[in-house]
Nucleic acid binder design. Structure first.
Length: 771
DNA sequence: AGATTACGATTTTTT
DNA sequence: ATCGTAATCT
């Protein structure tokens, strides 16, 4: 194997990228253009031509999956495992570096890595400890804010809250306290890994230089998804030589909401002067029609460098547009097509993509009803499952007794009669003596924490943890420890009675044990429990698509990135669903939605089906579609089979929706007063439930009720969802949603002039034009 | 301590 | 609809 063997398998653009020598190179790799091939071949070439030793190459990706794939393909090319070659995720590269060099801020080499769940638990504690209201300072939102800040390399000190008032002050305090508590626990979160690495390299120029020497060649995958911290890290590691090979596709940047900055890839040539630009535009995945559709759509974006995908393959089939009255019907039509296509495609060659997770439900129901094997991709990954998290928490308590959070997690798992009161007592004792919770527990068991009796099982827990520490000292590995935990706590019995999925959960525990064993066998001498725990926190995708039976894949559009399927469905192509309606119309956000659609379109190899529904149940309420997705109208002429006439953009669709399921207005009023299911309609909520139940009941019966065409006695017709209404200022609009009754009823209306507005019925002089 | 109820929020999720 | 949390009960 030499370089010419490699080059034979590459097109001219790919060769250019692979053969590029010193200095920065930006590879704009369109969907399905052989991006991974370019990266792996480039690594192989650098090694084959002895331009670099394995230890002089650092390739970073975003996911473990991508890293693993890259590694195995490089190994395959060179027919050997390559010691010293770093192909890893940004985060594990950072973790590794920090463990070697020691993290700044006195965090040092020993830290544990908090995942999202740990972060949530911690932030909740912090909010509570500052006596703040969780309704105002929502844990998830706060974490998102801090994460954004950290991704932009902000610390609590440099962080500027969005509002310069009491709220902002508290927010900043919260941020500071959160970081402080992390430090107290000897923990870092995902964002800290990046942030601390950048800080370390910035604060120690000598060190940065050292690593610039060490990693002569840098390769960055999915460059369009880098955030500010990752960008800085790349710059710091590249150094003045700027030996960076950045590979990405600005049109597939779909993680803005998580801090990714498209600008990084758009400005690459400015940031790294002398950049060689390579565009990979030949697509090896999709048909001509699919590429033409995708190209037509993405051409509407402004934030791009511009690429035009082409294929040597033929046009293939046109794209099918499916219009349905309801989400239910949409799902049925999809399964209908699947039944047809089963003759041509295997089930695992098909994927259904949607914007939001809840959309999977109705699809799943329809597939189940038709007996079509299917699987939702994503969901809880292995290490996020409760039983696994619990066991891992035990290990973490043993590995890091400083961390109170993990001990709190397991202190009553399996149940030992420990409640809030007992935990509070322990915490008080810990605070009084400056102890960790673990120490407080030990003292309490010895009777040093007051007279009140402790739950008896706590002594057993203390004993177990002592034994664990001894085992660890004696050189026991994670598998040994786990076995003892499972045996010592009766964990198996506990989870077996957990729920209906008890048996599955038990299997998961066995799998964890197997993984721990495997780790013990494959790891080196000095790698121990904390390396195993790193692995556990940084690796989430263990639910590899194990397909013993072919199954249709269901997933969000985000999850579909990087995958490909011969037959693809994209459902829910309605304004408000995709693109999602967030009230504001931020053009950048819209461009990101469009990129997401582009990602979806380019997943398809042979056939593509797009669908939308006139009405849809969202959060238990029926919402009416006022327009098909604008993205559909961006698909060039001739790509789509469109059985029904297409409305002009910006105009609402002539109503095809069937409203006959809805009980008429009088029926609604009557049922609202009636009691349903033997329950008395007492208070406000009971009344509301009664209405809902009645509605549900009637909907289930599929009662067809004629609309009373302006029946006398109902002078002021109340607008209902789906109605066309006239507003004195905003003009015509379609009612989307209605909430509340009588005096304070509100409606959400989509006006052609100003978009969606929420109006109080009493004041908005709405005239119902068409019900 | 554990069960029950009431209330609110709910895009997307690589690490 | 559904999940998680807080308040309220047994």
């Amino acid at each position: 194997m030499d370089t010419s063997d490699l080059l034979k398998q590459l097109n001219p653009a790919q060769q250019k990228a692979v053969l590029h020598g010193e200095g920065p190179v930006l590879v704009l790799a369109g969907a399905g253009s052989g991006k991974t091939r370019v990266i792996t071949y480039r690594i192989a070439r650098l090694l084959l031509e002895k331009l670099a030793r394995p230890s002089e190459i650092l390739a970073v990706t975003f996911t473990n999956k991508a890293a693993a794939e890259m590694k195995s393909r490089v190994d395959q090319l060179l027919g050997d495992e390559l010691p010293g070659l770093w192909i890893s995720t940004f985060h594990s590269a950072c973790a590794r570096l920090l463990r070697i060099e020691g993290a700044p801020d006195g965090i040092g080499r020993h830290f544990q890595i908090y995942d999202t769940n740990d972060q949530q638990a911690l932030i909740k504690q912090v909010i509570e400890s500052l006596s703040l209201n969780v309704k105002i300072f929502q844990p998830r939102k706060m974490l998102a804010i801090f994460s954004q800040a950290k991704n932009q390399l902000q610390t609590p000190d440099t962080y500027k809250p969005r509002f310069n008032d009491w709220l902002g002050d508290e927010e900043q305090k919260l941020f500071r306290e959160y970081q402080q508590r992390l430090a107290d626990c000897g923990a870092v979160d995902f964002d800290d890994l990046l942030l601390l690495t950048v800080r370390l390299l910035n604060e120690k120029p000598g060190l940065a230089e050292l690593y610039q020497q060490r990693f002569r060649y840098l390769l960055v995958d999915e460059y369009q998804d880098t955030n500010r911290a990752q960008y800085e890290m790349v710059r710091l590691l590249a150094g003045p030589r700027g030996n960076v090979c950045a590979v990405g596709d600005e049109d597939q940047s779909i993680y803005r909401w998580r801090g990714a900055e498209v600008r990084n890839i758009l400005d690459f040539e400015r940031d790294f002067p002398g950049t060689q630009l390579v565009k990979l535009e030949q697509n090896y995945r999709s048909t001509g029609t699919i590429l033409r559709a995708a190209g037509g759509v993405i051409d509407n974006n402004t934030q791009r460098k511009g690429k035009k995908l082409w294929t040597a393959a033929g046009d293939g089939d046109p794209i099918r547009l499916i219009r349905a009255d309801s989400d239910l019907e949409e799902a049925r039509m999809v399964t209908g097509v699947i039944r047809e296509e089963r003759r041509t495609f295997e089930l695992d060659q098909m994927a259904i993509l949607y914007r939001m997770n809840f959309q999977s439900r109705v699809l799943e129901d329809a597939l189940r009803a038709d007996g079509i094997p299917h699987k939702i991709v994503a969901g809880l990954s292995f290490y996020e499952r409760k039983e696994i998290k619990d066991l891992v928490a035990y290990l973490r308590v043993v590995a890091n007794p400083r961390d109170d959070l993990d001990l709190k997690r397991i202190i009553n798992v399996p149940p030992r009669g420990v409640g809030k009161k007992t935990v509070e007592r322990l915490e008080k004792h810990a605070a009084a003596g400056g102890l960790t919770l673990r120490q407080a527990l030990a003292e309490a068991v010895e009777g040093k924490a007051g007279k009140a009796r402790l739950p008896a099982a706590l002594a057993e827990l203390d004993e177990l943890l002592r034994e664990q520490s001894e085992l660890l000292e004696g050189g026991a590995g994670p598998a040994d420890l786990l076995e003892q935990i499972v045996n010592g706590t009766g964990f198996a019995e506990y989870i077996r009675g957990f729920d209906i999925a008890g048996a599955d959960r038990l299997e998961n525990v066995e799998e964890l044990l197997a993984k721990a064993r495997e780790f013990e066998e494959t790891s080196s001498e000095e790698e121990g429990l904390s390396q195993f725990l790193d692995l556990v926190s940084l690796v989430s995708d263990s639910d590899a698509l194990d397909a013993d039976t072919p199954q249709v894949r269901l997933m969000t559009l985000h999850t579909s990135k990087g995958l490909e399927f011969p037959l693809v469905f994209i459902v829910g192509l309605e304004e408000g669903v995709f693109p999602i309606d967030r009230g504001d119309q931020d053009p950048e956000e819209l461009e990101e939605e469009r990129r997401l659609f582009y990602v979806g379109l380019t997943r398809a190899m042979k056939k593509l089906n797009l669908s939308w529904a006139g009405r849809r149940r969202i959060y238990g309420q029926t919402r009416y579609t006022y327009e098909q997705s604008r993205f559909l109208t961006e698909i060039p002429e001739g790509c789509l089979i469109d059985p029904t006439p297409r409305p002009r953009p910006g105009h609402s669709l002539p109503r095809t929706t069937d409203l006959s399921w809805a009980p008429d207005r009088r029926a609604r009023k009557m049922t609202a007063r009636r009691t349903v299911g033997g329950r008395t309609a007492g208070g406000r909520t009971a009344g509301k439930n009664a209405v809902d139940e009645a509605r549900q009941f009637l909907a289930n019966l599929d009662i067809k009720v004629e609309q009373p065409a302006g029946s006398p006695g109902e002078a002021a017709l109340e607008p209902q969802p789906g109605d066309l209404v006239q507003h004195p200022k905003f003009g015509r609009g379609r009612v989307l949603q209605k909430e509340g009754q009588g005096e304070d009823a509100k409606v959400r209306v989509h006006f052609n002039s100003v978009g969606a507005r929420t109006l109080v019925l009493r004041y908005a002089r709405l005239e119902v034009l068409e019900g």
